[in-house]
Structures are given as C-alpha cells and as structure tokens.
Write a protein that binds this DNA or RNA. Structure first.
Length: 925
RNA sequence: GGUCGCAUAGCUCAGUUGGUUAGAGCGCGCGCCUCACAUGCGCGAGGUCGUAGGUUCAACUCCUACUGCGACCACCA
C-alpha cells in the first residue's frame, strides 16, 4: 500500500470509525482485571455539537483510548439529556411559527410533539460526536427520559420522600414569567443592570401632610406592600414606629415597624415591605406575620383578584389590570408623580436576576413547590471532597465547590412545564376537592394544603378515605434531578446490575466548570445518598473555548467556530490535537483557526515521516519470531541508540502527562519528539545507514525506524486516532505482519523501556547536534550557499575529537561539510569564521567568501555576551554568602560556568586578533 | 459586596517542588524546490517575566500592597 504524498483525511475517518464500531472495539473488554469508566456529560438531546462539546469529548476520548490501550476494561457511557425547559422552549418556538400555542395543543399532544422532535433531532449530536472519533460504547447509550432512567428517577424521588428529605410547601421562589415555571436559585443569573432608585412618600394615616419616604428599585411592587420598616434606633423615624401610613394608589393602611434589618444609611432609611415579591421582605413578613400579597399572575401581569374586595375590583385597579410588570411600573410612577408622591429618582446599578434559559427577568413568586432538604445531602458531599475521596482537578475549583455547598439552600425541584419527569405524587380527588384549582390552560394546580401521596406508581386506594380517584401532580422535575443520578442510573440502578458492580464508582468525570454546581455537586450528593459511594474518583474540570479575542463564542456575536466545519476542513485529528495542545490546566482556550491549520501541518509531517519509513523498509515481519531477538542495543549505531533513548524518555513523559490530566503537555511532548527529534535528526541521520552500504547496519536501522514510528503511532493514537490507524495498517502491510492484531486501538500502550535510556548517548548526540548547528550557523551568517560544501576545522578535547572522528559522516551530511580537520594545541586557522561550543572551537575557513567586517561584528557580539555572562557568574561567586550557603552542586556548577566563559572569551579574543592581523596583512590563507 | 484566578517575545501561551544562557507555536527577517514532507528545510532577530516593596546567599518562581483584566458567588431595598 502506497501512501499518497499528502495526508487526506476525507473518507479515512468515517471508514475507521465504522470499522472500530463493527469490531466492537468500543466495548469494555472482558478478562481485564482493572476497569476504567466514565459517563459522558449528556448533551442536550436536541443540541448540536459546539466547541465546548468538542473539547470535553476530545479529552474524555484521550483518556479512554489511553486506558483501553493500557490494559483496562473501559466503559464510556454515552447519552443525551432531555433538557426540560430548554427543549420545551425550542418546541414552543416551533409551534409559535405554526401559530399554535402549547395551551391550544394540550399537555399530551404537546409532549408527543416533543418526543417527535427528539426522534428527529436526537441523533444529530451523537453522530457529530462520532465524527470527532469518540470511543463510547454505543450499546450503553442512554437518554435521561428512557424507561430505565425514568424508573431511577421515580425511585430516587420516592426514597427521598420516605427518608424525609422532600417536602412540598408554599415558598417564595424564583419564577420565570416567560417559561411560567419556578427555577432553582442557581438557575437565576444575576447581571449588573442600570436601573433607578425611586423615592416614594407614603403619607401618615393621621397626618397626610407628613409621611415616610421609601426608596425602591421596583415601584410597581408597592401595590403589594404590607408594611414599612425603619431601623429602631434611627433618630429620624423614632416616633414613626407604631404609626400607620397609607399606601398610595391602593389606599391600604400599613403598619410602620422597627427592625434592625433595615440599613439606615441606605436610601432614605425607610424600607417598603412586599413579602409577596421580595425575598428579604418575605422573611420580615414571616417575622411580623404580615400578609403576603401576590400581585401578579404567572406571567407577571397584575392579577385583579389580588385586589378585589368581596369580589369587587376597586376603581383604581382599572388602569392596571393585566398589565405586565414593566407597564405597571410606568403607570405606578406616573400616578405617583401626578399625586406629588414621587420625591426623587436617581440612577442606580442593581443586580438583576434573569432566567438562565430565556434571559427574562425573574420574579419572586409565591407558589407551592417541591423542595429537597439539602443540608443532610450536602454535608457528606462536602466531606468526600475534603478528605480526597473525590479529587477535583485543578484543585482551585474545590474552593468554589465548598463555598457553594456550605451556603446551599433547599433545592426547588418542581417545574411547571410539561417536558420532563412528571413528579410521582398523587392527590386523592376526594380528600383534596377544595385544593385543586383549574388554570386557564386546563391544568390543575394543587394548592399549598393539598396532601400528596408519593409512590412509585399510581395508588389504587386512598389510605385516608378509601377513594379511588387520583389526580397526578402536574409538575415535572428539574432536569438536573435526573442528571444527578446519571453515573448510576445509566449503569442500571436501581437494579443491582453487573455494570454497577464493575463500573461504579466511575473513574473520572470530565466537565466544564459552568456545571460544577448544576451537575457535579448534585451527582456527588445523589451518589452518596443512593449508592453509598462517590460517583467518581476524579473530576477534571477543563476550560472554556473562547474566540481568538477571548470572547465567549455565541451565535449572537457571530464569532462561533463550528467544529464540524473545522473537521471537514482540517480533519478530526488535527482538530483534536489542537484542542489537546491548548488545553492547559485552568486557562481558557482562545481558539483561532490558524492554530488548527498549524497542527494540520503536524499531521502531515507525521504522514510524511511514515512515508519515508515505509518506502525505505525492506525487512519484513519485524515482530515475528525470526526478529523478536532485537539487535543487541550495543550493536546499534549511535543515532539509533539515541532515538530509542529519547523515545523511552518521551514515553515516560507522555504517560505522566496523561495520568495527571496535562493534555497540553502530552500533545507537546509528542509534537516535539516526532517532529524535532525523530524527523529533524534521526530520520536525517538514518539516511546514512540506509544508503551506507553496510547491509547489517541498514537492517538494524530499518528496524529502529519501524519501531520508533510504531511507537509514535501508539503514543499519538489517543489524540489522533484516525491518521495513526491508517498509517499503522500501512506499516503492518509493508512488514507483512499478519498477526499484528486488528486495530491499533487495541494495541498495548508503550511502556518505558528502561534499557533504552542512555543518558551518555543523549549527551554525545546533543554535542554533535550543537556542533552541527554551529557550522550551519556560520554558513548562514557568511551567506554560504547551501549547496556548497565547506571545510571545517575543529579544536576539541581528546574525547570529543575521538567521538567526532568516529561519527564524522553525520557532521558531513547534516552540515554539508566537505572535509574535517582536527587541530592539536597551538595552531589555529588564520582566516576563519569562529564559533565556540562548550570547550570546542569550530572554525570554518571561508576563503574569499568571508566578509571580515561582518565576522568582526559577529565575534564582537559574541564576546560581549560572553563577558556579560562571565560578569554575572563572577558576581555570584564573589558573594561570600552564596558560596557559604548555597548547595554545593550549585556552587560547583557556577564555577564550571565561569571557567567555560573565560575560555570562550579567550578564544574569541584570539580570533578577533587574527582577523585584525589579516586586515593589516591582507593575507587570508 | 465576597471569593478565586490571571498579567512572561508582535500574537497565543508553556515554565510541577526558588539556582536554566527564561522556552514553544504562530508571525516576522534572511537563505534554500537538499531524492519523506514547500502543509517543507536551514539560520536569525525579538523579553529589565504588570508596578512597588519584602523574605532569601539567590525570586519569573514565595509573601504583601497596588494597577489592569477575567470568572464565580451574593436578597441590602
């Protein structure tokens, strides 16, 4: 099989993916003693692949493929999330385009419609993940609303109820008037917003000319005020406490209460109390037994019923009824202004809470909801992170985790939407006859006093009255409730399955920090509660992918880079490698397309290195019996020993990097080794053996080339699975290896071959490389044509001289050197460019070509640097404290440096002297 | 308001226990179609490591303050 001149990812990727899948390579192996498991952070079922998914899944795939090759039985569970509110919103928007509302359709038909959409769109993202190359076990694919997971959800809910960790109560909750549902605290995003502080006077009942002036950012809520509060020690309001004020517009009488909660320094020092629409006011309302008036309906429009007295609406209400919050605000402000009660308006910055799904400002809203008593769950979840049973990497995130968990409040888990897990609670129709209220959409709402029966299935008989008619709670659960069970629900819980035994706790969870609280924290709590063990050992938290300016990618900004487009253009391997290379811990990734373009070159480089090796291989069957006795290390030439030593070092570094989630280091070690050690040096040096005429050496070098190439493929496979597989198959083909195995994916990951580590060889080749560079440098500086061979004169220690003599062919080939002469003490060439490598002096006599002025400038510059270096070292050594206190090795090293620099200076000065001499005599010979 | 993080070459970033001649990729400059690769090869220029102090024989690295940027959390109307 011939490889084409440039790597074309085109069909290769799909070909291999299908191959692996059909081979069953994604499934956990039997037999392996160690297992490694992960659950995918389930993407929204109707979503499509974005950069965040691409990064997240690339990193997971690297881990899985690495562990699989390293002998673990690997299970990576894929799946999708039903994403309650998000998905419902999408489908509602679709309906809206058809001019249908969800209410018109009705609950059942609406849900059917969502399922239909799920069937249409649900596979998109998973297929896109396949294009990325993820090695998930597709037989394990799950959906948070499939049968098994739904059962897990019901089970979890019932157990929480039975254990007293669930309750239903009327509380002030965050309400999204657009989604018309309650939200958890964490689903509200606070955003600094420009607003106003309105100062409104509430006249005293007994003296309407006086009164208290309150300051508020939300004047429309005054319609629901039930008190005014001041600080009890506030001199200004000493005699106001206990009096009554009349609420403007509404006319209601309000008590003036004194409470230390009020900050006298803020605003006017007088605070309007609206227990129905403000969390703080709610608390105060509780404390003083104030009435909680809910002035809005579920769309945050003025609710006439809130003001009707004995069924009759007061006259003032006419202009307000059914107006939304913001219209109402305007109207209230206008009316107050007209009445001379608006005393002042000042600009004010406030943190406005918005719905995380639709950005609508959230309204504190009084409704009955289901809550999880979170304290008993949070405490052990904090503990396991503290004692390291769950390790958060990078550990900085643990701080955020603790901060959040320690201040956590009860979790509102009921949502007034239709798409999701309907709460497994029923109400006896007879017992709750007075508590079920029909809404406009035909839904029933159970009021706060309704008595739920929580059960795994619909009850048949009411234990109180024996009634047989039940109403199911219409609410569904927070999406994150089911995601919280994901690590064990996907493995079969509540059944005690083999998978659970084998793969729970999972090994590591890879995710972005944006869902640390939404998801990670919940999984830890739920895992501990229901499994009695942590859901994962490690949590690796990766960064966000941003655009090249560091802006968050978003459709509205138009700065989104589409992973699919990128993969189509550059290939999945180049893309994956880019993401890994840029995934430095704890730092966001600023991605520009040029980076991917750059790493595509690396893929191509690897491809061409492979082409070189393949076209030079004449040996066959290097792994078969005949050749399993590899050549003794000592028989190999120095270049081969060197690259094997470097390979061994690289294997060590690579393993360490992946083991500690340093994906960028993993990528960079391999980039460096493949390109700058293997290609730049070893392949070049190997050409001498391949063309040298010594048949034995040639065969040995071929074997080394094949070995190194194969190891590179193995090492790179987790990050670039496709091209490595493609090359590996070609390599097997070329070697005639039938027994090599079916796929690179299931080969053993390289281990460090300690016997190959040869520091002394690395040192020698390092020296040879430096000499080579020095000669190349001199050539370039002197503008010596690359095609022209030069003569080199070396002055080196006996050791180095012997080494260079024995390996002279490399120097000749790599630096285009015609002849090499070795000087003994005393003699130095007259007209030559000079370079110094350690103790070695390198001279390139360039005859007529040498520009004496240029060379003098160059030498002067070198000399200047050397003198600076020497001065710095001398300064250190001259410091008595340094010599006395620093470690001996450090001092010794400094002394060596001093000697080296002195020698260098001496040599440079001599060279300069010789040039001046030539200038005077004109004799260049 | 609280907490945390980040400031290193023109750009994007590495730099794991304090001691290196502070690195890479891209970009830039010069020279090359050298028989794996011009998606390439060789060479080179470019940084007082945000500012000011402190600890230490020694600070890019540790501490403090400041400045700038960012993130998360937060019910002060």
């Amino acid at each position: 099989m011939e490889l084409s001149k440039a790597y074309a990812h085109g069909e290769i990727e799909a070909k291999w993916y299908r191959y692996w899948d059909e081979l069953g390579a994604f499934r956990p192996s039997d037999g392996a003693e160690r297992s490694f498991s992960m659950v995918i952070p389930p993407p929204n079922v109707t979503g499509s692949l974005h950069m965040g998914h691409a990064l997240n899944n690339t990193l997971q795939d690297i881990l899985c493929r690495y562990k699989r090759m390293d002998g673990y039985s690997v299970l990576w569970v894929p799946g999708t999330d039903h994403a309650g509110i998000a998905t419902q919103n999408v489908v509602e928007r679709q309906l809206a385009q058809e001019g249908i509302s969800r209410a018109q359709l009705g609950r059942e038909k609406f849900i059917a419609r969502v399922w239909q959409w799920k069937e249409e769109a649900g596979n998109t993202i998973l297929n896109q993940l396949k294009a990325l190359g993820v090695s998930c076990d597709w037989r394990h694919e799950r959906f948070t609303m499939d049968e098994g997971l739904s059962r897990a959800v019901r089970e979890a809910f019932v157990r929480l109820w039975e254990d007293g960790l669930l309750y239903r109560a009327e509380r002030l909750v965050n309400w999204c008037p657009r989604c018309k549902t309650a939200l958890a605290d964490i689903e509200v995003v606070h955003e600094e917003t420009d607003g106003h502080l309105w100062h409104i006077r509430y006249p005293f009942v007994d003296d309407p000319s006086g009164g208290l002036t309150v300051a508020t950012t939300r004047p429309e809520t005054m319609l629901g005020d039930t008190a005014v509060a001041v600080h009890p020690d506030d001199e200004r309001y000493k005699n106001a406490v206990g009096k009554r004020v009349r609420l403007p517009i509404v006319g209601r009488e309000l008590p003036v209460i004194g409470d230390v909660y009020v900050d006298p320094a803020f605003g006017t020092g007088a605070l309007k109390i609206t227990p129905g629409h403000d969390f703080n006011d709610f608390e105060i309302g509780q404390k003083y037994g104030l009435e909680k008036i809910c002035i809005f309906d579920d769309e945050a429009k003025i609710r006439p019923a809130a003001f009707a007295i004995e069924g009759r609406e007061p006259a003032w209400l006419a202009r307000y009824r059914l107006k939304d919050r913001f219209e109402a605000r305007k109207l209230v402000v206008d009316e107050l202004k007209a009445n001379g009660l608006l005393e002042k308006v000042e600009p004010y910055r406030l943190a406005l809470g918005r719905c995380y799904r639709c950005q609508t400002p959230v309204e504190p809203y009084l409704t009955p909801q289901w809550f999880v008593k979170i304290q008993p769950l949070a405490a052990p979840a904090i503990e396991v992170v503290r004692d390291g049973r769950v390790r958060i990497v990078p550990e900085g995130w643990a701080n955020s985790y603790f901060a959040w968990m320690e201040n956590i409040k009860d979790w509102c888990i009921s949502r007034q939407i239709w798409w999701g897990h309907q709460i497994p609670a029923w109400y006896c129709a007879d017992c709750n006859a007075g508590h079920a209220i029909k809404t406009g959409t035909g839904d029933l709402i159970l009021d706060k006093d309704a008595k739920p029966i929580v059960a795994r299935a619909e009850p048949t008989r009411c234990p109180v009255c024996g009634g047989e008619k039940f109403i199911r709670d219409p609410d569904v659960l927070d999406t994150w409730f089911s995601s919280g069970l994901w690590p064990f629900s996907t493995l079969g819980w509540p059944e005690r399955t083999e998978d659970l035994k084998r793969f729970y706790p999972t090994s590591v969870l890879v995710t972005g920090f944006d869902i640390l609280f939404f998801w990670v924290a919940r999984m830890i709590m739920m895992g501990l509660k229901f499994m009695g063990d942590v859901p994962f050992r490690d949590v690796y938290i990766h960064a966000l992918v941003r655009d090249q300016e560091g802006q968050k990618m978003s459709k509205s900004k138009g700065n989104v880079i589409d992973p699919l487009e990128i993969m189509g253009k550059y290939g999945a391997d180049a893309f994956r490698f880019t993401l890994a290379a840029m995934a430095a811990m704890g730092r966001d990734i600023k991605l520009a397309e040029e980076r991917i373009d750059g790493y595509q070159n690396f893929v191509n480089k690897l491809w061409n290195a492979a082409r070189f090796v393949l076209m030079n291989l004449t040996i066959r069957n290097i792994d078969g019996k005949e050749t399993s006795e590899r050549p003794g290390h000592e028989e190999l030439n120095v270049a081969d020993r060197w690259i094997l030593s470097r390979l061994a070092a690289t294997v060590g570094s690579v393993r360490e990097a992946i083991d500690s989630y340093r994906f960028n280091e993993y990528a960079h070690y391999l980039y460096q080794f493949t390109w700058h050690e293997f290609c730049d040096w070893h392949i070049e040096m190997s050409k001498l053996a391949l063309n040298g005429g010594d048949e034995n050496e040639r065969r040995r070098t071929e074997r080394v080339l094949a070995t190194v190439l194969e190891n590179i493929l193995l090492l790179l496979h987790p990050v670039m699975p496709f091209v490595t597989e493609e090359i590996w198959r070609a390599l097997n083909d070329k070697l005639g290896r039938k027994e090599a195995g079916l796929t690179l994916m299931l080969q053993k990951y390289p281990r460090v071959e300690a016997a190959y580590r040869r520091p002394e060889v690395e040192e020698k080749i390092g020296y040879l490389m430096e000499i080579t560079r020095a000669v190349r440098n001199l050539r370039a500086e002197m503008n010596c044509a690359p095609s022209k061979e030069v003569k080199v004169i070396l002055f080196a220690s006996a050791d180095n001289r012997a080494f260079l003599r024995s390996q002279e062919r490399y120097l000749r080939a790599l630096a285009r050197v015609g002849s090499v002469d070795y000087l003994s003490d005393g003699e130095r060439p007259k007209g030559a460019a000079t370079a110094i490598v350690g103790e070695t002096e390198v001279y390139v006599p360039l005859g007529d070509m040498i520009d004496l002025e240029e060379e003098k400038i160059r030498l002067d510059r070198e000399l200047g640097r050397a003198e600076e270096d020497l001065a710095r070292v001398k300064r250190k050594l001259g410091n008595g404290d340094f010599v006395a206190k620093a470690k001996e090795a450090v001092v010794r090293r400094e002394k060596e440096k001093a000697a080296e620099f002195e020698e260098k200076i001496r040599t440079l000065k001599l060279s300069l002297g010789r040039i001046r001499e030539i200038e005077q005599t004109g004799d260049k010979a």
